[in-house]
Nucleic acid binder design. Structure first.
Length: 757
RNA sequence: GCGCGAUUAGCUCAGUUGGUAGAGCGGCGCUUUUACACAGCGAAGGUCGGGGGUUCAAGUCCCUCAUCGCGCACCA
């Protein structure tokens, strides 16, 4: 090979230094090709690793199921964080000899996806879902989901995700549908799923129910009016929602409140803005003496606490507001009016009648729907629920403190698994948050009035003999002719809750299930600890009597350089693809993981990413130096005492990195390998080597050459989980690149063994 | 109201069981020395939010206050 003459004179060339090493590292030129080599090798699939003798057949399994990204668009930096953390763990464990499976998939995200597509259709065609009809809308949503899926998979590959694409799953595909229906039927038969007429969170904007967890509270100013229903009514009450008061059936006071004892049990009639109401004074512990007048107007149909009070006192529950947040009672003044208009009308009426005693403005949290922003209207509706407190028999259990065949509840399962430490949460202070949530957990409303999702596997028909009785069927298979399926779909978290085992083929008793379940780690953001993580624990405990995973690793939110939350509307969102094309996926990964601890929000800036691009180039140049100066390096050379000390010191570093990775301290591991390579290997060892390599003492020289080659191969190996692309590219350029003997497998760094044990 | 977290160098953050404060970026000075200027060398910069306590020793443990953020509840 000819010595390339370089104008900047930056390189000495040597016969074993490949041309491309003479130029700065170009991530964009390398990364796509490298991913293809990995993928073509088939080694993302653990069975192929075993087949080729790279993993022992009896090796312990290490499993992560990918938290399925919603098919609502593109991946953002939060996803990038998730993929980076998981890929580091997976690559590390693969190199440590585990039977390593990273199972990918996507989530149909029911309401999120449908509302996004609906919005787009409304915008481009001016049509609503009702104009299109159920089938046509679903067709559009599916097409959108497919597009979105393809984008996501591409983004993941660009980031270097080493997941087993042959096992890819979708929360709405056939296998997952079978899992959903199987669990539904089992829960229905156990009496844990029931259909009930209860007060639910109704989103008038999205025209659907939502769960408690899908509510976000927004602080607003509200006027609280203190008034009496009529002139001769003895007790004043307070409310910020006078329009609901036409639905009042009682006034509740605290049993110990001396001011009102004389009225308890008495009943009154009044005509409230044209609506006749009948009010009974009752005593209930739920009333706070010190709030307002200490008397609470009970509106059972439109307030969750009032519904419960009505339950306790056997009160009627007249509905006065409908699904469109409009009044359903009264004369022409109220009937059909929106709640806000009705409020004004009633306030004016109260004032005219001289019933208002006090008006004050206060701060209030208004419940809004996370997805649509609509103000939640509590309404009584016939919906499907999961009973979290009802005892049932758990036939088979490996959950600590819950024996097979014993009676338990879903709440108890969620408590036991985490309480005993069988599942641990990182950082552990979230354990407290988790228990707090369980304490406040009520029955889970699982039916949604949208079309995209798992349709509730319940069918109805009217009995032919009496033409009156309704028959109900629930099951995995469609019962066929004459039956009508429930119109509603399931909350998207129902199917996500099954994810760790539905992806492994359940309800079939597959080998995958035996080998890879329970999974090792679930890695996700704390924002879906309740939505998803807790539901997985619930569902797995119920369906399998087992835990879904051993460790919950919660990463923090990724914010921009100024600490602002990234969002499209703020224009500060970063696209993982842009970062990869500008700095390389490796740089993006290192920037995401360095200086971040689980549970803590992190900030990422282009400067930070740029720093790690420089790091990739640094290793590139280290390799150039080592290769051009150690061409006579031989494995047979003996290390001098000095060099042995240096090698041992590196092995100590490598061991610490392994310890940190085992304990999920990824940020420490990343910083240690970075520090070692740059400040120790490059700045010290390489510099000190220059005179030694020029030495006449061949023992010293050969020892040093061997040391450099060894350190290069091993540091590149240890860095691989963090920066898989540049390390793989360099591995290819090393002369004798195999740390794993006796295998005919292609010499990919990805499948090498970790250098220390 | 209950609970949780954060507060460390100009900026962004590490700091695993208590043992003389670290990194990256930025800034400053010097160096184009044959791996790399996407670099090297050097220096600067912190009473670890305030106060109190435990200890031979506290960024690290305890109490308290302040500010910021988060979760849950309440919201008549």
């Amino acid at each position: 090979m000819e010595n390339p003459s370089n104008a900047s004179g930056q390189a000495t060339s040597s016969s074993n230094v490949p041309d491309k090493l003479l130029k700065p590292y170009d991530p964009v030129a390398e990364e796509a090709g490298i991913y293809k080599k990995w993928e073509d090798s088939g080694y993302f699939t653990p069975e192929n690793m075993i087949k080729d003798g790279l993993t022992k057949p009896d090796a312990e399994a290490f499993t992560i199921v990918l938290p399925p990204p919603n098919v609502t668009g593109v991946l953002h930096m939060g996803h990038a964080m998730m993929i980076t953390v998981e890929d580091i763990l997976i690559r590390y464990k693969r190199m440590r000899g585990f039977r390593t499976l990273w199972l990918p998939g996507t989530d149909h995200a029911a309401i999120a996806t449908q509302s996004k597509v609906e919005k787009e259709i409304q915008k481009s065609e001016g049509k609503s879902r009702h104009d299109l009809g159920r089938e046509e809308l679903l067709k559009r949503v599916r097409a959108f989901a497919q597009d979105s899926h393809d984008t996501i998979v591409n983004q993941m590959k660009v980031m270097g995700a080493s997941c087993d694409w042959t096992r890819e799953a979708f929360t709405l595909d056939e296998t997952r549908t079978r899992a959903v229906r199987t669990v539904f039927k089992k829960m229905y038969d156990d009496g844990l799923i029931y259909r009930g007429h209860k007060i639910v969170n109704w989103d008038p904007k999205g025209q659907t129910t939502i769960s408690d967890d899908e509510i976000v509270y927004e602080p607003r100013k509200a006027t609280m009016y203190t008034f009496k229903y009529s002139k001769d009514f003895p007790i004043a009450i307070s409310t910020t929602r006078p329009e609901t008061k036409v639905g009042d059936v009682a006034v509740a006071v605290h049993p110990d409140d001396a001011r009102y004892t004389e009225y308890i049990g008495k009943e009154y009639d009044a005509v409230f803005c044209g609506v006749p109401i009948h009010i009974k004074v009752i005593a209930d512990q739920a009333v706070e003496k010190d709030f307002g007048t200490g008397a609470l107007g009970v509106t059972p149909a439109h307030s969750i606490t009032d519904w419960d009070i009505a339950d306790r006192h056997n009160l009627p529950r007249p509905q006065v507001i409908n699904e469109y947040a409009k009044m359903t009672v009264g004369d022409e003044r109220l009937m059909g009016k929106k709640v806000l208009e009705a409020r004004e009308i009633i306030v004016n009426w109260l004032k005219e009648e001289g019933l208002v005693e006090k008006e004050e403005v206060l701060d209030q949290n208004v419940a809004t729907a996370e997805r649509t922003g609509g103000i939640i209207e509590p309404l009584p509706k016939l919906q499907w629920f999961i009973d979290v407190n009802k005892p049932f028999t758990l036939e088979h259990s490996t959950i600590d403190t819950i024996a097979s065949g014993s009676e338990t509840t879903l709440k108890a399962i969620m408590r036991a698994t985490v309480g005993t430490g069988q599942i641990s949460i990182l950082p552990d202070y979230f354990t407290k948050t988790y228990f707090h949530w369980i304490d406040n957990l009520r029955d889970w409303c699982i039916s949604r009035q949208i079309w995209y999702g798992h349709r509730i596997p319940v069918w109805y028909r009217v009995k032919s003999d009496d033409h009156a009785t309704e028959e109900i069927y629930t099951g995995v298979e469609d019962p066929g002719e004459g039956w009508t399926q429930d119109e509603d779909t399931l909350d998207t978290w129902f199917s996500s809750g099954l994810w760790t085992f539905s992806t492994l083929g359940w309800p079939e008793q597959t080998d995958d299930l035996k080998i890879y379940h329970p999974t090792s780690v679930i890695e996700t953001g704390p924002d879906i600890l309740f939505f998803w993580v807790a539901r997985m624990i619930l569902m797995t405990g119920y369906a399998l009597g087992d835990i879904p995973f051993k460790t919950i690793y919660l990463h923090g939110l990724v914010r921009d350089g100024q600490g602002k939350k990234m969002s499209k509307s703020l224009g500060n969102a970063m696209d993982p693809l842009d970062i990869a094309s500008k700095y390389g996926a490796d740089a993006g990964r290192m920037a995401l993981i360095s200086g971040t601890t689980p549970g803590t929000d992190s900030k990422i800036s282009e400067d930070k990413i740029k720093g790690y691009k420089h790091f990739a180039n640094k290793i590139w140049n280290i390799t150039r130096f080592v290769l051009s100066n150690s061409d006579q390096a031989s494995a047979e050379s003996t290390l001098t005492a000095t060099d042995q000390v240096l090698l041992d010191a590196w092995h100590d570093v490598a061991k610490k990195i392994a310890t940190d990775l085992d304990a999920f301290r990824l940020h420490l591991a990343a910083e240690d390998i970075y520090q070692y390579i740059w400040t120790t290997f490059a700045d010290k060892i390489l510099e000190e080597s220059k005179p030694l390599l020029a030495s006449d003492d061949s023992a010293v020289k050969q020892s040093r050459q061997k040391l450099l080659m060894t350190l290069l191969a091993e540091t590149v190996t240890v860095l691989h989980p963090f920066m898989p692309f540049v390390t793989e590219a360099l591995w290819e350029l090393l002369p004798n690149p195999s740390l794993r003997s006796g295998s005919s497998a292609p010499s990919l760094l990805m499948i090498q063994q970790w250098p220390t044990t």
